[in-house]
Structure formats: structure tokens, C-alpha cells
């Protein structure tokens, strides 16, 4: 259980994190979403006891991040933004070193290292020097050091940044596995990532909290109107089609998007919370208009994000 209460941190006059309040439930995978400079990294540095907050407080499993920093540090695993590692060390030596710093002694140390290595798929590079690994493998080593002592809370700062698509898929899968029996906070500005991996999303912008919710709820909350797309065979004059569609109750706007003579496509905006697909189908069938395709457009998290951030930003 993590409680963040009015957490703030300034860099000079720049309010990097401004009065942030949220909770994270045990076992939850929380996504921290925000554009560059939103304050994600700064928040994580405070939660990991590296940077003291200017005001506000946070407790992790009941331990205050300032007063009981040592207890907090025993319980978290942290992957900083650029996954800094001792590049001159071998993976094996590095993980043993970190394990010792985390208080693991030989019999447990070996099994902890083995678990982290198999969990992160590091077997093939176990005896290699870190500097010689690809970015993706270095990222895995960074995650391996974070999970080494089997912490209750994992804090991962942009774990997939700078990886190729193949590696991104692997790392996301790894995070999903890790999230099964732990609490995870991960930051990202890649929306599909948060969408795929997280139970709940916190969106911040310019240090301030903009929204907290599950990806689904956020989508629901932000859908001002729902959008339906249609493809229709051109056996009927297009004026008739528009009139037929506009006569359906709940439809706000009909616009033709595309017409190549045989097929035309329409975008239909309707009131929120009313699924009008059935009404459209009935109407078109009764008018003998050939319907080729119909689907509801889901608002992507990307759209939500852009909406939220632009709505909140005073411009």
C-alpha cells in the first residue's frame, strides 16, 4: 500500500512536482503517464528516497520515505531512467555485488541471482561484460538488479525507452509477469504500453495530477461523443443516405468521408452512452441501402492523453 500525499518538489522556481496525491493498492500495476518534463522521474526519485520532497509526504507499506528511508529502501526495487550500470563489470559480478548491498548472503544470494537471471532471460550473457551488451540486455540487467531481493514494490522509470520493437515486446511481457505478484509503478510516455501493461493510469502534466483511473474508465470518461464508421455501397443517391441516417434518433452529425463511385464511407457522431449501431442497421435495411461495414471507434488512450493534457494546459 502506497500513499502519496501532497508531494511537491521544486528546482529553483520550476515546480517539477506540484502537490501530487494518489494511492497505489497492493498488487496493482500503476502507469505513470505524462509528456516530457511532466515530473515522472522526479516523483520516482522521491519515492525511492533519493530526492527529498520539499513538502508533502509519502509512505510505502507504512514507512515514511524521509523518516524510515532505510526500511523503504529494503522493500523497493528501482530501475532509474537510463538504467545506469557499472559497465566494466560482468553481469554475474554485478548481480552478486548488488545482492550483497541488498543484504543477501551466500546461500540465498545464489538462488536470488539465479531467479533474477532466469526471470529476465539473462542466461546467455551471464558471463559477459555489461558494456558489451545490447541496450535491450542492459535494460534487462537493470530490471534484474531491481527484482533481485524480490521487493514488494518495483519502480521502473521508462523501462522500454531506447529499445527496438522486438525488445519492447519482450520487456513488456517481462513487466506483466513481474506485476502478477508485486506492486509495480512504471512511467512511460508511450500510451499503448501503459494501456497494455497497467491496471490503473495516473496522468500528470507540468507536475500536476490530471487524471487517475483505469485505462477503460478513462476512455469512458473522456468519450464526449462516440464515433461510428460506415461503408455503404453506392446503389442509392447519397443525399438519400444522409437523410436516412440523420433521421435516426441520437445521431448528432453525419459526414461523408470518402466516395469512389461504388463505395462511400461515413463518419457518424452520436450521443455518448447510446449504441446506435443497431438502429443504423435497421434503418439502412428498411431503406434497402447496402451496408458493407459498420464499427464503433474506440477512443485511443493517445487521444485521451492529448485531450487531457491540452485541456489542462493554460495556453
Amino acid at each position: 500500500m502506497i500513499r502519496v500525499n501532497g508531494l511537491s518538489r521544486n528546482y529553483g522556481l520550476n515546480k517539477a512536482v506540484d502537490n501530487l496525491t494518489f494511492d497505489v493498492a497492493k498488487g496493482e500495476v500503476l502507469g505513470f503517464l505524462g509528456p516530457n518534463g511532466a515530473g515522472k522521474t522526479t516523483t520516482m526519485k522521491m519515492l525511492t528516497c533519493f530526492l527529498p520532497p520539499d513538502s508533502g509526504s509519502a509512505s510505502i507499506f507504512g514507512y515514511d520515505i524521509v523518516r524510515d528511508s532505510m526500511e523503504v529502501r529494503k522493500r523497493i526495487g528501482y530501475l532509474p531512467e537510463r538504467s545506469p550500470l557499472y559497465s566494466d563489470m560482468k553481469v554475474r559480478d554485478y548481480l552478486h555485488f548488488v545482492g550483497r548491498l541488498k543484504g543477501l548472503a551466500p546461500p540465498r544470494l545464489k538462488s536470488a541471482v539465479d531467479n533474477a537471471v532466469s526471470g529476465c532471460g539473462l542466461e546467455s550473457v551471464f558471463h559477459s561484460t555489461i558494456a558489451k551488451l545490447s541496450k535491450g540486455y542492459q535494460q534487462r540487467v537493470g530490471i534484474a538488479q531491481a527484482i533481485l531481493h524480490d521487493p514488494e514494490l518495483l519502480i521502473l522509470d521508462e523501462p522500454t525507452i531506447g529499445l527496438d520493437p522486438r525488445q519492447i515486446i519482450d520487456i513488456r511481457q517481462l513487466i506483466r509477469n513481474l506485476g502478477r505478484d508485486r506492486t509495480v509503478i512504471l512511467s512511460s510516455h508511450i500510451l499503448p504500453e501503459v494501456n497494455q501493461v497497467c491496471d490503473r493510469v495516473i496522468i500528470i502534466n507540468k507536475g500536476k495530477l490530471v487524471a487517475v483511473d483505469s485505462p477503460d474508465n478513462l476512455r469512458e470518461r473522456l468519450r464526449k461523443s462516440s464515433v461510428t464508421r460506415l461503408s455503404i455501397g453506392n446503389s442509392v443517391p447519397s443525399g438519400d443516405i444522409t437523410i436516412a441516417l440523420e433521421s435516426i434518433e441520437g445521431i448528432l452529425l453525419v459526414s461523408k468521408e470518402y466516395d469512389d463511385g461504388s463505395i462511400s464511407k461515413y463518419i457518424i457522431e452520436s450521443e455518448i452512452d447510446s449504441d446506435i449501431r443497431n438502429a443504423i442497421i435497421r434503418k439502412l435495411v428498411s431503406e434497402d441501402i447496402p451496408l458493407l461495414e459498420i464499427y464503433n471507434e474506440e477512443l485511443s488512450l493517445e487521444d485521451i492523453f492529448i485531450q487531457l493534457v491540452t485541456e489542462e494546459a493554460p495556453s
Binding site: K45, T48, C49, F50, R73, Y78, P84, L85, S87, L101
Partner: peptide
Amino acid sequence: KQGTFELLLTYPVT
């Protein structure tokens, strides 16, 4: 310089 300092200080080490 390498940023490992940050990680080191977040380990339970005095």
C-alpha cells in the same frame, strides 16, 4: 557521472 550513484543511494546501504 554514470548515474549509478542514484541507484547506490536507493539500496539499503548506509
